[in-house]
């Protein structure tokens, strides 16, 4: 019998400090057994449990795209026991990955549509996975216009800065980077909160799906903007967070109503969420 709690052994290949406060680091892992990599088949929007022997496990969104072979990538915010331990680990060390877990963004439904991506802070991880996935030559034609609004507190708090710059220069993706505030005179992008920039830059909800990930406050204020633009609740897609352990709908921890966020989620449409108790 397969043991769904057993992590695949992986080695840390590279660690990149992402932000000026050094609280966010990106980890690239490679599988110790190549056959495990073949089994780890994921779709953008899914997450995995990062497992550190002696410390525990944490659910983290997969930040790489399935089109990027050879390693899997996660960006981890330092908050408590396991994330702090992980931040002090070094390339070459052995740990585990369990997954992929949960559902994913509605890729089939998004084909032939305009895709609006709205991200705030470090919740941009699975959105990065999605962008990389969509701009692959073999995938790009499946989607119409791609528009991205991504914001952080300050320029130094943005994730994946090199890639953001590259995407800025492409003409098949419409980027709107923003920061809450900055004193940098050379800052070439937007200044303002994500909901405000969304209101300014997104002009139409026609034939569009919006993927929204960010801190609760950002989601709260972005929702009415999208609704005003004409996005129906079915077309507003959110990724939720709940405290988790098993990640496979068994330990009973992460429910919202009758849905286990780890298994039936973490991706829900606003329409689905409206049917559930407001307890998240």
């Amino acid at each position: 019998m397969e043991n769904p709690y057993l992590p695949y052994p992986v080695r840390i290949k590279e660690i990149i400090t992402e932000t000026e406060d050094r609280n966010l680091k990106t980890f690239h892992f490679e599988f110790i057994h190549p056959e495990d990599e073949e089994k780890f088949v994921y779709t953008p929007g899914q997450f995995a449990e990062l497992s550190v022997a002696g410390q525990g496990e944490i659910p983290i969104g997969i930040a790489s795209s399935p089109t990027e072979k050879g390693s899997v990538m996660f960006t981890v915010n330092r908050v408590g026991a396991v994330t702090t331990y992980l931040h002090n680990m070094k390339p070459g060390e052995t740990m585990g990955i369990r997954g992929p877990l949960g559902n994913w963004y509605p890729w089939e439904e998004m084909e032939g549509k305009n895709v609006v991506i709205i991200g705030g802070g470090f919740a941009f991880t699975t959105l990065r996975s999605s962008i990389i996935y969509m701009i692959q030559p073999e995938n790009r034609s499946k989607f119409k216009d791609i528009t991205v609004v991504y914001g952080a507190r300050s320029p130094g708090m943005l994730l994946y800065r090199e890639e953001l710059t590259q995407w800025e220069q492409r003409d098949d993706i419409d980027m709107h980077i923003t920061v809450d505030a900055t004193e940098d005179p050379d800052w070439k992008y937007n200044v303002g909160f994500v909901p405000t920039i969304t209101e300014e830059k997104i002009t139409s909800a026609d034939n569009a799906v919006a993927l929204v990930c960010g801190p609760p406050i950002m989601i709260k204020f972005t929702q009415p903007v999208l609704e005003k633009l004409g996005f129906p609740p079915e077309k507003i897609i959110l990724s939720l967070e709940m405290r988790m352990k098993c990640g496979i709908g068994i330990c009973g921890r992460c429910n919202i109503g009758d849905q286990y966020v780890c298994k039936e989620g973490p991706v829900f449409s606003l329409a689905q969420l409206k049917e559930l108790p407001q307890e998240y």
Binding site: M1, E2, P4, Y5, I250
Partner: peptide, 11 residues
Amino acid sequence: INFDNPEYRDP
């Protein structure tokens, strides 16, 4: 039903 379902079986 919780521990032994079509998607996952708790060994």
